[in-house]
Computed example of a mutant assay.
Amino acid sequence: MGRLNRPGLSLALAVAAGLIAYVWLQGLPSQGPKLTLTPVVASVLNDAGTPASGAVRPDVVVVIFTDYQCAICKRTDPALGRLLARDPGVRVIWKDWPIRGPASDFAARVALAAHRQGRYVQVHDALMAARGQLTPERITDIAYQAGADPTRLAADLQQHARAIDEQLGRHRLQAFSLGLQGTPAYLVGPYLIQGGLDDRALAAAVRKARRAGPPK
């Protein structure tokens, strides 16, 4: 057996280290600009069809652009629920932005159809918690297990298909208009943040947004 070529080994280790660093950095939040209340930001905050939860008169609004096949989204999404549980002054607005293929698109449609029966958050949480490959059959099964009525869900997917198309189209346009590079991405108060936020980072972003106030 020949000895390992040291220059080749060093290069391989350097490449591997670079790939690990790249993947790690992809998961870190990127602090974006402090936004003003432009028509684009107003459309993000005032889209009546977008699912939302939390305070009726919030002092901080957190908008999250997300995809059900995004690994970072899945890892950091539970922090939003914990934030809502402990902070009565926060409202979370969910923007389904399916950018990872047909399964992501169908999952988003199922979640938005479930919204018509008041089960968006439950279905959203269940889809985010799901591990492994998402198929249409598995997506609908997850929705049923999360409490969505099967008959109504199927009907709403058909009857409200155009409205759901338009909703997803608005989310897509809003994401592009904000210059988002992918999911997850947040608008926390006036601050645009790209990348996942764990509990600590999310709480810090909310504190900063509370000091700054909403986009003006």
Rank of each mutant, 00 (worst) to 15 (best):
A85W: 10
K74Q: 14
D67G: 09
G132V: 03
W94G: 04
R100D: 10
A71G: 15
G169A: 11
D87H: 12
L134E: 09
A143I: 11
R91L: 06
A148S: 08
G118F: 09
Y144Q: 13
H171T: 03
T183G: 15
Q122I: 04
I72G: 10
I142Y: 10
V63R: 03
A103K: 10
F106S: 08
R109I: 06
G101K: 00
A108E: 05
H171E: 03
L180Y: 11
T183L: 03
A103T: 11
G182L: 12
T183P: 15
I93N: 05
M128F: 10
H115N: 12
A85Q: 09
T151L: 15
I72S: 15
A85T: 11
D59F: 06
W97D: 03
R152W: 14
Q122F: 04
G118W: 07
L83P: 03
A103D: 09
A85N: 06
A148E: 04
S177K: 01
D149I: 12
E137T: 13
G118D: 06
G81R: 00
A143Y: 05
P102L: 05
G89E: 12
A114T: 00
M128P: 01
G147I: 00
R86N: 06
D77I: 00
D67C: 08
R91P: 15
R82Q: 03
A143T: 04
R109W: 09
G182A: 06
L157H: 12
I64R: 13
I139N: 04
A161K: 06
Q145H: 11
T66Y: 14
T183Y: 01
P98W: 02
I99N: 03
A154K: 07
L127K: 02
L178R: 11
D87R: 14
H171Q: 09
L80T: 14
A111P: 05
D141Y: 11
V61H: 13
